[in-house]
Design a protein around this nucleic acid. Structure first.
Lengths: 228, 228
DNA sequence: CGAATCTTTGAAGAATGTCAAAAGCTGTGG
DNA sequence: CCACAGCTTTTGACATTCTTCAAAGATTCG
């Protein structure tokens, strides 16, 4: 499958935007796009072949699964996000599609060569890695909040900010991008506790719900206080 | 204070090892070393000036503190580790010395210029950022283990591996680098729970303790099972 | 429309947090 | 060398929160 960088929806935001059109085209010939259906796995922990990818559309999750099958979600990946460990011997975590997705995938060797040839690409990847590090630390902080109420309130605020066009103000209403189980796996709680906390938040008038996924922020300030 | 790269104990491992001696000397003239006593802060969240640093000796912690003064430890930094967000507008977290430490500090502007001039430095920083990301995700996974026993057992194993010379086998005996309170802040538990779990681990014969900090691994396999 | 999945709700039990106090360790100064 | 002050660690009893187990209600999608 051939890459069509010219019509790529993330061509302005992805790491490859650090390259000129010709440089990007040369890199494109070494990669390929891959379509993933919801629930399909892009990488698995321990895979022998290590690849890297940029998410074009959809959403992915990075997760660890323990022996009993409990999943711990370590990161969400949005379009233009980069996935892949360029220096580790093999992938450490599973990467799975949350919704139908499309990625632009490269072998690690090709990407390494491109980074050596084009310093700007390395800088773009460095920026992305530092942003990912920041996100991981935010999630770490959120996952350790003392009460379940603080964790759920904080997650809803995070989703509201991500759903908003403006960087400052959270969206007033939006759809939760995750199931209860996935929210639980992001917060270190059980499905039931997440469900009950959402009910509490609605009962106390901080949010309103429409169906299982729809959320409206009634009192954002109250949410912020609950999130501590 | 002038930098003495020639005698720097981390000259072979730090990011600046990607540079030639002359390049490093040029960069060195723009930086300065700084000594920190135990508990002293290197950066605070919200500081206006953003700086970057390499740890030369000692140990640092990256932490977030909430309104009630509860600390959540997001990362430990060992010698040759790099600290600093090169692309964020201001530092997001506090960086504090766990023990008396010495760092090699640069302004962000100088470091950015050096990265543009020396692509190998950018690649070295990229590798470090991806390693830090990996560590953050490991800690995230550890912090979400269901039981306090699994978290404490996992942390002890992580310390044992860090204390070992060989990368494969954990050290058989070592000193805990953190207080109970700091361990609690790494795991999302209370001091009392950490203390009780250590007692349990000793009572069941997985570890032996010598004083408040000394640990000997009696049954590493048992620890591994407890850590799930 | 029906099957599968996801969500909600309830009741009971286990685990951790909280509060309080004793014991151990460390470093300073007499 | 000892004594003391300050800090860290341990231990106990109790309250609270979360998890577990179970089952019924929604929602989604073929």
């Amino acid at each position: 499958m051939t890459l069509a960088c010219d019509t790529c929806p993330v061509r302005a935001k992805a790491a490859c935007s650090a390259l000129t059109d010709e440089e990007r085209s040369a890199l494109a010939r070494l990669g390929r796009t891959r379509e993933l259906k919801r629930g399909e796995r892009l990488f698995a922990a321990g895979d022998e072949i290590t690849a890297c990818a940029t998410l074009i559309e959809g959403a992915l999750k990075v997760a660890a699964t323990d022996a009993e099958g409990n999943e711990s979600i370590l990161a969400l990946v949005h379009p233009a996000g980069f996935i892949g460990e360029m220096f580790a011997p093999f992938p450490s975590y599973e990467v799975t599609a949350l919704t139908d997705s499309r990625v632009c995938q490269f072998s690690r060797a090709h990407l390494e060569a491109a980074v050596e040839r084009h310093p700007a690409l390395g800088i773009a990847l460095l920026q992305r890695a530092q942003e990912d590090l920041h996100s991981a630390r935010e999630l770490l902080d959120l996952s350790r909040r003392k009460t379940a109420a603080a964790r759920v309130a904080g997650l809803i605020l995070a989703f509201a900010r991500a759903a908003s066009d403006s960087p400052c103000h959270p969206a007033e209403s939006f759809d939760l991008p995750l199931t209860r189980g996935e929210m639980a796996a992001m917060l270190g709680l059980t499905i039931e506790t997440v469900s009950r906390q959402l009910g509490e938040l609605e009962a106390m008038g901080a949010i309103a719900r429409k169906g299982a996924r729809g959320i409206a922020l009634v009192t954002p300030a109250q949410l912020g206080e609950l999130a501590v």
